[in-house]
Design a protein around this nucleic acid. Structure first.
Length: 236
DNA sequence: ACTAACGTTCTG
DNA sequence: CAGAACGTTAGT
């Protein structure tokens, strides 16, 4: 449970000034299964009030200060960054929310009928989500083009969305050659709209040519052909 | 042409 | 092995 933090990534400042141009997410409505070490029950059984999670997520002022760029080492980022910011592996909190949604435990609020809600939460898009039934799904699905409407989106809905034109092949895995795969657009990292500007990828963007760690698609983190990959991209 | 970012290779 | 650097692809 101690690792369930870093989907947040560094929060506030980056919202305002992510220097990099953030493209509109190539949101794909297909919801793919992700193989995570934790099962749904793992999350359900773990009491995690929004406040507590938020408390874990929010970096302390001291931590933020330590993260100030400026004293860049030529190599190897200094250990001043706490693990909570440097370990994208902790994304399972997001995964938990995803699982909960699938299980119908999280309610999806339609963007249109947001009586102000959508606007209120907009600033949180992609940054971090308090583990609250209302906040988390709203962000991504609002951008999703109004596909998501009801509380429990069943597998049929997902399949239908997939059938809208996003085939596994179109994701780059199908061509046969080693074409670039594309971001799934659905996972929490993909839904982030801002670069944290603090992770190693952001700080080293010029040379690293890598997307912000917290925006790195969970699917792309997997090796094609690696464990679980065929599940994500079933051969048809 | 320029930029973003995926994939591969290199390095510690 | 993880992370950095680089080559390359893809979108605008």
């Amino acid at each position: 449970m101690s690792t369930a933090v870093d989907i947040a990534g560094p929060s506030s400042p980056d919202q305002a000034h992510s220097s990099a141009k953030i493209p509109n997410e190539p949101l794909r409505p297909s919801l793919k299964r992700s193989s995570h070490p934790y099962s749904l029950s793992h999350y359900i059984s773990t009491p995690s009030p929004a406040v507590d999670v938020k408390g874990l997520i929010q970096p302390s002022p001291g931590q933020q200060r330590a993260a100030q760029p400026g004293h860049a080492k030529p190599r190897r980022a200094p250990s001043s960054w706490p693990d909570m910011f440097e370990s994208p592996s902790g994304l399972h909190l997001a995964h938990a929310a995803e699982l909960l949604m699938r299980a119908g435990l999280l309610a999806l609020t339609p963007a249109e009928d947001s009586s102000g809600c959508g606007a209120d939460f907009q600033p949180f898009l992609g940054a971090w989500f308090p583990f609250s039934p209302a906040l988390f799904p709203l962000a991504g699905f609002q951008m999703g083009g109004g596909h998501w409407r009801s509380t429990a989106v069943g597998a049929e809905s997902i399949e239908g969305l997939v059938a809208e034109g996003y085939s596994p092949g179109s994701l780059g895995g199908g061509g046969g050659g080693r074409r670039k795969r594309k971001r799934c657009g659905e996972c929490v990292p993909c839904r982030r709209q801002t670069n944290c500007e603090q992770c190693s990828s952001c700080r080293n963007r010029k040379r690293g040519h890598q997307i912000c760690k917290y925006r790195k698609c969970e699917e792309l983190k997997r090796k094609p052909g690696g464990p679980g990959f065929e599940i994500l991209y079933p051969t048809q």
